[in-house]
Design a protein around this nucleic acid. Structure first.
Lengths: 218, 218
DNA sequence: GTCTATACCTTGATAGAC
DNA sequence: GTCTATCAAGGTATAGAC
């Protein structure tokens, strides 16, 4: 792994642990055992690092979040979405701890973020509509829009919500599973008779993961 | 109004407009036309100011968020809750823009916040259960807990969610009404046959407020 | 590519006069 | 209670040597 990648990796780890605000370029360099000057050789500034992390975040979503394919079992695809959401919420949770500030300080990033999130919203909405077509849920067009917003908000801000309720200790993988349960909660009331039980089982599955004391997952 | 109150007032306004991170004690003093030294005569530091604002936030909730009274119409009481939530989300929205950071920097505030939010959660949960008792909704005990969490998360993070989707301009009162609609969305799926229409009307009411171009409200 | 050294700036905070 | 003056600390960023 080259230095540039190492800086990104370490930055993500430190931001997630201590918060973006608390971590300076000096902290990142010192944690890596390199000089601040070297860090500035690879990145223009701290914003530049964050933009690069955002690109990874965007690539993660673009790779894993494709439209619902009618050839496959919709609930299986939903499970895949949830698993990749889990990864996303886990890897980049620092980003949502002070999203407003991060975007306020970087006009370019803000534009990218807004445009990406608009696309993402449309995709989430079309997945909700797709689940309706597959008779998994029964929902009006208007409610689909509302639910899509609630889904996006939940995925974004579940981790800060959890952190704010905890005096010590860091975010655990169980906390994320708990967030996935909340995501499923948003679907549950709209389930058709056909799918209620299946969604219930899916929710129980993630609830169990949330309650377990997990062995560390790489 | 004395200087101490003026500092609090101005701080809230500036924090809401530009974010807590961007506003320094110097900004606050200069905006008020007083010296930094004077500000530090009234407050130990920036954290001290934020703690005082938190106290106002807490008092607002403690005053307006009482248990459901069985003697009155439950939906009327719900409306009152929603109106005071509106006020809360509007006045103190800066607080949630980087809640994690604010709490991470102040151990004392974090303890107060956690303990207050734990009480608040119990109150929200008991209101949900109260709405069940009043036959407004039909919900299991387990789902009531989930919904209570979703309600709290939505009230807390709706404003940062909105801000992150907007390139220019500040938060408007309509945005908050939109958040109230989301709060009602969380109840809707659990409504009994008796209340579905009424909740629908309530939602339409707030949706209308959200869509209107409002004349300024003091 | 990487280091050392450093200069600039912002922020938080205090001392002492009035 | 309020001001002026000031500073220490910390963070950002660059220059120049290797």
């Amino acid at each position: 792994m080259n230095t540039k990648e190492k800086i990104i990796r370490t930055s993500i780890a430190l931001f997630n642990l201590h918060g973006e605000r608390a971590i300076t370029t000096n902290h990142i360099a010192s944690n890596l055992g390199i000089s601040p000057g070297n860090l500035y050789y690879h990145f223009k500034n701290k914003e530049d690092i964050i933009r690069n992390i955002f690109t990874l975040y965007r690539e993660h979503l673009s790779t894993h979040f494709k439209p619902l394919n009618t050839e496959f079992e919709p609930l299986e695809q939903l499970t895949k979405y949830l698993d990749s959401l889990f990864e996303l919420m886990w890897r980049y949770h620092f980003f949502y701890d002070n999203l407003t500030d991060i975007l306020a300080r970087d006009e370019v990033l803000k534009k990218e973020y807004i445009s990406f999130q608009a696309d993402l919203f449309e995709q989430v909405r079309s997945v909700v509509i797709g689940l309706r077509t597959s008779k998994v849920i029964d929902i009006s067009d208007e409610d689909a829009v509302e639910v899509a917003h609630m889904l996006k908000m939940t995925v974004s801000f579940w981790t800060p919500y959890v952190k704010a309720r905890r005096l010590t200790g860091v975010l655990e993988q169980q906390d994320i599973y708990n967030g996935i349960v909340k995501v499923l909660m948003l679907f549950k009331p709209y389930c058709t008779d056909l799918s209620t039980q299946k969604i219930g089982l899916l929710q129980a599955h993630y609830q169990q993961l949330a309650d377990e004391s997990l062995p560390s997952i790489a």
